[in-house]
Nucleic acid binder design. Structure first.
Lengths: 179, 179
DNA sequence: CTTTTATGTCAGTCATGTTGACACGTTCGC
DNA sequence: GCGAACGTGTCAACATGACTGACATAAAAG
């Protein structure tokens, strides 16, 4: 990892190489979202709905503010899609126990099903790419991707682990750093 | 590819691993576009303008139809941003020689400058991530990314190499391809 | 000469983002 | 206990970038 020879180094980072990396991001991301978009369109939803469904499923009991922090959009933008999803029974809101201002979000069964359906093709696509590439390539992929992310997201990324965001008994967590 | 041990295989592709891959794509792509977006906003342009500038710069002499094939948007959508860029002097259109229906697109000096400015931060971000990750990780990154792309884009990706913006038969003019 | 292709444009719609302002209930610090 | 700060929701107005559908023109192809 630190054994890059000076000569190689120059070639390695030459413009063509970098542009290819940029373009792969563009093409891969587009392909990655395309399949789910088709499903969403049929339901009258958009990609924004998917993101909300996804992250609520990933962090059950997440609050609106925390979700905003992940998505980095304004609460007005979130509000529109979130209220649609709540209204149509995909997401449930429960008032926080220790802090009754907070609305804790969870997927309703209908939302769980949609989440599964939406990310199934994406998971399969990633799984197929991982399988074909092999364990070592995946490790390299992860390393580069983490390097592309910004510091804050990287931290958040590792904080993803165990959250249950229990609405009920659990201490609602000091809303601290969920670490 | 076929040398993954069965046991490892299961763990390797377990859901958490796949979801992390999906999320890294989301975070990395967002970060990747964020910096250029800021520059564009100052100029009154959007991400669509950037994509047009980028790919015209990448394929000097590209035709409108070819550009549509890369971007995968409708001609109406492209038309708006493209005509803005032409009107404001970032892109020049020249009628094709062997096929006078075609409008061959190239960056004007103003467009070259903007392209440079826009992709500079992106190139630096990719360069930094590549440098930190090392040659082998980058190779893994490329392998996985190519696996995520669809077949058609993968083909187009490799076809990026030697283009002179030709229609099919005639060389259409020297305009070598800035390799 | 007819059809197809490449391009452009008008008109309308939709999804997703933005800013700004305001309201309400809740919590917290002093 | 009270006022400030916080978490949430909502109204209004706007920008961007997609979309569909329809139509027009010039050029090439058959």
């Amino acid at each position: 990892m630190t054994d890059i020879k000076a000569g190689t180094h120059q070639l390695f980072l030459r413009e063509e190489e970098l542009r290819q990396g940029m373009e792969m991001l563009f093409y891969a991301y587009r392909e990655f979202t395309a399949e789910a978009d088709a499903v969403l369109t049929r339901l009258g939803f958009g990609r924004a709905h998917h993101r909300v469904i996804y992250f609520v499923g990933r962090h059950p009991g997440i609050s609106v503010t925390e979700l905003l922090g992940i998505l980095r959009i304004t609460k007005q933008s979130l509000s529109r899609v979130l209220s649609e999803l709540v209204r149509e029974g995909y997401i449930t809101q429960t008032t926080g126990i220790s802090d009754r201002r907070r609305r804790l979000l969870e997927l309703a069964p209908k939302g769980v099903e949609l989440e599964r359906q939406l990310s199934e093709t994406q998971r399969q696509r990633v799984a197929a790419a991982y399988r074909r590439a092999g364990v070592e390539a995946v490790e390299g992929f992860r390393t580069v991707m983490l390097g592309l992310m910004n510091d804050e997201d990287r931290v958040k990324f590792f904080a993803i682990k165990d959250r249950t965001g229990r609405t009920g008994s659990a201490p609602e967590r000091g809303r601290g750093d969920e670490r």
